[in-house]
Design a protein around this nucleic acid. Structure first.
Lengths: 196, 196, 196, 196
DNA sequence: AATGAATGAGCTTTCATTCAT
DNA sequence: AATGAATGAAAGCTCATTCAT
């Protein structure tokens, strides 16, 4: 009996694989260059293809950026899902996991703010981003399931953590380690407040 | 008897006035364009002068951006100072004032995040920004004067409010009014948490 | 049996051809404009391409200028090599050949002085120029092989010929032909002096 | 009895004085900046006046440059006149004086080549330069008064010395002192040749 | 006579994107 | 499917020069 995968499916998979390769390359570049200085050529070179080839997989630069971001969003959503399902102190662990993740994956955090602020995106891409945000917020909402205003608390916490990142990410005169430590303490502060 | 204002003073004042005109023009542009797409020509046109003329008043684009931001920062610091000194509920009023201000002055909020993230600034400008941030944080710190961890609480609140702005500023599918209302509720939520 | 030229070779050749086209265009412009007023757009237009395209072949303006000059330098070095190897009166023929070449290729002569004076070049480019100058001087040194101070004589002659070019190139009120004739006579004068 | 100088004369003198001040300022700038990077503002600032004011004394930038050059030319012509009239070895002393002067007054040497090559001058200015060159060449001609081809020898020597300057002015990898020494030796070589 | 504010043209360089091959 | 050459728009910035005061 033939494999269930049709020729169409194969093609689709291959295309997805290629996209993944490009996105991975993009991430590597994001990690070493200020976000808005990353060029298509940078990414193409890192991926080992030509710049023009990227346009076979992504309609334009913004689309690539959005997809790269979504991949990271998926990852963090997955992490939170797991933690919330298993942790003894989901609130605390969520806070730390989230902060740690963004700290370690600077590009995602910067992409996130980029999209929240500057981006001039097509409705299509906006929808995709919103959907991801919604799903991320869903995780936070679970943390306050027993509260009447769960959604508000979730939004507040999510916003607060984003704010911590953006505000103290470049804390002047502090080393990376010190920044991390400071964020940790702010995370703890927020934990105490939100666990009231 | 000599006039109180010397010729020097007059010149200085005129120069400052002109700077203000340019900054005001810049703000108007910031309000309608993604921040990092604003060009010197845009601003010049809006200000009714030539692009080259701007360089008489600001050494370069970044300097103009920073000064524009600082002007707003001064304003908000002044507002908070007054409120904290006179309000019966300084915490609550600070939260609302801050959120309202940023909401009304979208450009400032966007500039703030721009500087926090992308900017490639000269040490000189960075110092100016840091000093403004410090002074702003000082206001927040006053709110928690009676707490042992006043500074941490201040940082947390400041970060949280920034986060609220950045996260829900473009809340998808909501009108400006709805966004405002949502932020209000998040502000209230934070107020309750921080007043524990 | 494989073709002697690989695909790589072909590509390389094409790239070199294109560079040559651009350089040729540049020369045509150099011939009609003061050297430091030549713009990339001028050259691009003359070459029938866009200004941006030039940057595919030359890292920047200075690199293009240097390569243009080196091409001429190679040519003249080659000519002198041949003459010195075969001529019955190498000194005389070198003098005339050199003066004639520079006279006919005004741009090269102007480039040479440009680099000797104004240019703000990268070390890399400076090295290339120096190497070319050294090789050119080597030819002149051969002319005085039997003298104890061959190098000094070579330098003196080379410098003198350059000086003749720069000094009388624009001899006021003289036609091109008259200028040429005057240089010829100066060349002869130098020949007699240097053949003492 | 009244002074012979009329009011007109006084005005003229004052104007000339002012021009001299500006030219002196220009020279000081030429000494520290590549010739074609000197701006009117640079000069104005150094002269302690506004950029606009310069245009009261010089019709445009080129005119200022030319006059600055002419002043130096006068100086060197004067020096040569004196030397030729008094020296026991006028040829030798002329060679060394000329080389030394240009070596010490780098800006003049660079201006000279600038005018010989790039400049886009008005006929008026060209005339002035030509007249100065003629007078300079006259000095060199005196050196060969006893020769039948005095003018040719004069032109050759003048050109050769210019060539020495331009060619070895930036002799790669040599210190200023070494460059000077090398030029000295080339000067000596030329002396021996031209005194045949 | 002098200022200095303003202009406006112009320059190099970068880059997303397109398209013939 | 992929290349890579080419485009063309744009941007920041500089500067000689002008002119109202």
């Amino acid at each position: 009996m033939k494999n269930a995968k049709s020729f169409q499916d194969l093609k689709y998979t291959e295309k997805e694989n290629k996209k993944k390769i490009i996105i991975d390359a993009a991430e590597r570049i994001f990690a070493i260059k200020p976000f808005n200085q990353v060029t298509m050529r940078d990414i193409a070179k890192e991926a080992g293809i030509s710049a023009g080839a990227i346009y076979r997989y992504f309609s334009d630069q913004q689309a690539l950026f959005v997809e790269a971001f979504l991949l990271g969003a998926e990852e963090i959503i997955g992490m939170l899902e797991k933690i919330i399902a298993t942790s003894k102190n989901p609130l605390k662990d969520t806070i730390y996991t989230f902060l740690n993740y963004l700290n370690k994956h600077d590009p995602y955090f910067r992409m996130m703010t980029h999209f929240m602020l500057d981006a001039n995106l097509s409705p299509d891409l906006i929808d995709k981003l919103n959907e991801a945000e919604r799903r991320l917020l869903d995780q936070f909402t679970k943390l306050f399931a027993s509260h009447s205003n769960a959604r508000l608390l979730a939004h507040s916490l999510f916003a607060s953590l984003n704010g911590v990142m953006i505000t103290f990410h470049n804390y002047p005169g502090r080393s990376k380690k010190e920044v991390r430590y400071h964020m940790h303490r702010l995370g703890e502060t927020l934990y105490q407040l939100f666990s009231c």
